[in-house]
Design a protein around this nucleic acid. Structure first.
Length: 110
DNA sequence: CCCGTGACGACAT
DNA sequence: TATGTCGCCACGG
């Protein structure tokens, strides 16, 4: 758990996100102990589609529950994927964000 | 090797 | 409450 790269840590946590739930970059960064490097988490997500197994990056949004990354998904689909999992999204904003919010610091605590 | 950029976040004003 | 600025780490040019 300590020998792997920061990216791998991010991917590891991202893959643990349950279906129908979303989390934030800062939450993952905080879980990794580097909440200041939330940017790097997002950067890792950018390369998420290049790793194996694939990482559900569409389940990772910013602190506001806003789909700031849809532009990077190659066009769209991100919103539909989330809705397909039960996450309501309107105008790139996750509805009931606090309800579908999955915090690794809490869910994976202990 | 140095500089700029980027899926963010927290704090200060 | 809203806007502005800084910090943070990795990667590309």
């Amino acid at each position: 758990m300590e020998d792997i790269n920061f990216f791998d840590k991010v991917y590891h946590v991202a893959r643990l996100i349950p279906k129908g739930r979303v989390t934030s970059y800062g939450a993952i960064a905080s879980y990794l102990g580097t909440k200041g490097s939330s940017r790097v988490v997002g950067y890792a997500m950018q390369a998420a589609g290049r790793v194996n197994p694939p990482v559900p990056a569409h389940r990772v949004v910013n602190r506001q529950g806003l789909l700031t990354a849809k532009f990077h998904f190659g066009g769209s689909t991100m919103q539909e994927m989330l809705e397909s999992e039960g996450v309501k999204v309107v105008d790139d904003q996750v509805q009931d964000f606090k309800t579908v919010y999955w915090d690794p610091n809490i869910e994976l605590a202990l």
